Simulated scan of single mutants.
Amino acid sequence: MSTGAPRPTVGAVVLTMNDRPEEFARAMATLLAQEGVDLDVVVVGNGCVPEQVPPEVRTVELPENVGIPEGRNIGAANVKGDYLFFFDNDAYLPATDTLSRLAAEFMREPGLAYVQPRITDPDDHTTLRRWVPRLRASDPTRPGVVTVMAEGVVMVRRSAFDAVGGWPGHFFLFHEGIDLAWRLWDHGHTGRYTPGVIIHHPATDPARHDTFYRLNARNRVWLARRNLPTVLIPFNLATWILITLWRTRSRSALRVSLTGFREGLRGGYGSRSPMRWHTVARLTRAGRPPIL
């Protein structure tokens, strides 16, 4: 009789719109090749019937595109596992022990709620700044505690995910990772960046159209109004406006961003649950006060 420790159980969620056939096939092949974990996988067709799905993988067909965070919530409700792995369908796992190494981090640290691997471009192995979940992102090889996440490739403790209600589904796209991370921290958990575990993802630019600028701005406002103590909301939004004015060179993009900002101020952010001041202090000590 074996006396070894039980294998980690991982529920993996992959979204598809059937628009990346080559990338999706590679993503699924590397996911199903994982060793050292008991893996349960679901593919969610966001407004489509999923295609190219291996026969052993379950699917969920959504009649319309409900957005990325809500699609992930639906996927999470359809898999079993102590840990949830959210996996972009154009990423892939270069090693067969990727998931077991991520799961091992949770077993070493009971208070850990999410683990972020290092994401690199498969061709030139660069790591974009937005993939490094901290303010000082110049060195993507430095591990440590982090207060946000790159939500497209992340592992989350299932019990913690359920306790905070999952992703903010109504965000549709952008900043849902910050929202989830803040709520996890407010429940007493932490996050960790483990650059020794590498996942490949093409280094694409998401700023392609007006929808990017509008939702990015709207969700920034929603993020603050949902999660911050009232006194911190104007500081957070003022910081965001200054950064936007500094970074945005296109007048058209700036105009759409301000439209999204006004949309966020009008409401629609959902239920408000401001974080405790103890959480504000913890986030600040961890290197990222929630006004940034």
Rank of each mutant, 00 (worst) to 15 (best):
G11K: 05
P229W: 10
Y193M: 08
P289K: 04
F87G: 00
G75M: 06
R129E: 07
G11P: 02
R249A: 11
A95V: 12
P122A: 09
G177E: 12
R251M: 14
T190D: 04
V37T: 04
A77E: 13
D124H: 13
H125E: 11
R208K: 14
A286S: 14
H209M: 09
R58K: 15
P133W: 01
R20Y: 04
V13M: 04
L180P: 00
T141Q: 10
G36T: 08
T211S: 13
Y269S: 02
W277Q: 01
A27H: 08
A281H: 04
P229V: 12
G71H: 04
H209D: 15
I241C: 14
N65K: 14
V148F: 06
M1F: 13
S138L: 11
T147V: 10
A25G: 09
T98F: 10
Q52P: 02
A224T: 02
D205K: 13
V14I: 11
S100R: 11
D97E: 04
T230K: 13
D38P: 07
V164N: 03
H189F: 12
G169Y: 00
F235W: 14
T244W: 12
L180V: 02
F172T: 06
I233T: 10
G81S: 10
F85N: 05
F161H: 02
P122G: 06
S138N: 13
R285P: 05
K80N: 11
H175W: 01
H125T: 02
Y83S: 09
W240I: 01
P122I: 14
N73Y: 03
L135I: 15
I241F: 13
G45Y: 00
A113S: 08
D38W: 04
T211P: 04
G165P: 01
D38F: 01
N227G: 12
Q34A: 00
W185E: 02
D82I: 10
I291G: 01
G166C: 01
A238N: 15
D90R: 04
A103D: 02
A181M: 03
E151A: 15
L93W: 01
A33L: 06
G165D: 09
E23T: 08
E51G: 07
P21A: 10
S271A: 12
Y213R: 01
Y92M: 07
A207D: 03
H278L: 11
V221L: 11
T141F: 10
N18W: 03
V37P: 04
G260E: 00
E61C: 14
T9P: 03
G75S: 12
R158D: 08
R282C: 10
N236G: 09
G264W: 00
E70H: 03
L32M: 06
Y213P: 03
G166S: 04
F106P: 06
R218E: 03
P69L: 12
G152F: 05
T96C: 07
T194R: 11
P195G: 07
L102I: 03
D97T: 08
Q52I: 09
T239C: 09
G270P: 02
F235Q: 14
R101K: 14
V13A: 10
A203F: 00
T147N: 02
R142Y: 02
E109P: 01
A207V: 07
L102A: 08
T96A: 11
L135Y: 04
I291R: 02
P55W: 07
G67C: 02
R282N: 09
F87K: 06
G81M: 07
R7P: 05
